[in-house]
């Protein structure tokens, strides 16, 4: 894992990728810092952290598009997968390399609050908490990018799809507000989910029996839940989509609240996408 980590980290700075990421990130961060802190003489640094999250949409695809897709295009995955490394080790090495570049950039931006502290008092712990949230949010976005990069051997496609996925998460809270919350639509949505899972199983395994069994069990669970607690499906769509609402959890950090549950949420979110990445690579070897 360490060898892959070191190689990836070097590769970021042997190509323009690392510099583009850092440069763009620092530029945007600097502009916001100048306008909302320096020019207005405001010590409210945390508002910078909350307004620059949109920068992830552009820089995370730059950081992650190459990670897995370039390996399969250049056939270097043959070297990695026939070496005594585990797939998990390879994926983790790559993930941590991307996270390390991000962390390094974040450390540079720490200069801004330090500059502010020369001119007045700043809320140190609030800013530390804000940074933790910002870091976890970025790490979760990177795990999505890594996952998408493992699905294709074309960097451009990886970048565009990652951008779209992040954009979707970005507008998710806004979309959720417009969704129906009544019971019927909740049940319909649950049924659609079950059908989707069954169809996915069918297209990956071509086993009609297992797919039908999954669908039947799924509908059974829905019916069971409905009879046990009929209020369960009120607002079911909204609650399901809120699982993916990375930004909603981020608001807590911005208000200076540092609680355990969003931290666990972000780490779990990243872990799930890393696990999916490992599965995709393993599956490609079996198909």
């Amino acid at each position: 894992m360490l060898a892959v980590f070191k190689r990836e980290l070097k590769a970021y700075f042997a190509s323009p990728t690392g510099y583009i990421f850092m440069g763009f990130f620092l530029l945007i961060c600097g502009i916001f810092f100048a306008f909302s802190n320096l020019l207005t003489a405001s010590p409210d640094y945390i508002s910078v952290l909350s307004s620059i999250t949109f920068v992830f949409l552009i820089v995370v695809p730059v950081l992650t598009m190459r990670l897995m897709s370039e390996e399969s295009r250049q056939k270097t995955d043959q070297l990695l997968l026939t070496s005594p490394l585990s797939v998990t080790g390879i994926v983790l090495g790559k993930y941590f390399a991307a996270v390390a570049v991000f962390l390094l950039t974040l450390l540079i931006t720490c200069l801004y609050p330090i500059i502010l502290s020369f001119f007045g008092t700043i809320a140190v712990w609030e800013i530390v908490g804000g940074y933790i949230g910002f870091f976890l949010l970025g790490a979760a976005f990177i795990s999505i990018g890594l996952f998408i990069s493992s699905l294709t051997d074309n960097q451009v496609i990886a970048a565009v799809v990652t951008f779209s996925a992040l954009l979707f998460i970005w507008i998710l809270d806004w979309v959720i507000q417009g969704l129906p919350t009544d019971r019927i639509s909740g049940i319909v949505f649950a049924c659609a989910l079950v059908v989707g899972v069954a169809a996915l199983v069918y297209f990956t395994t071509r086993n009609i029996f297992v797919s039908v069994a999954i669908a039947v069990v799924g509908f059974g669970i829905i019916a069971g839940v409905y009879f046990a607690n009929e209020y369960f499906f009120d607002g079911f769509i909204v609650r399901t989509l809120e699982w993916f609402s990375l930004l909603k959890r981020y608001e807590n950090f911005m208000m200076g609240i540092l609680s355990l549950s969003p931290i666990v949420y972000y780490i779990t979110f990243s872990a799930v996408f890393l696990f999916l990445t490992v599965r995709v690579i393993e599956k490609r070897r079996w198909s």
Partner: peptide, 9 residues
Amino acid sequence: PEFPPLYMD
């Protein structure tokens, strides 16, 4: 392998 798995960079 047939195409040596080399990192060009």
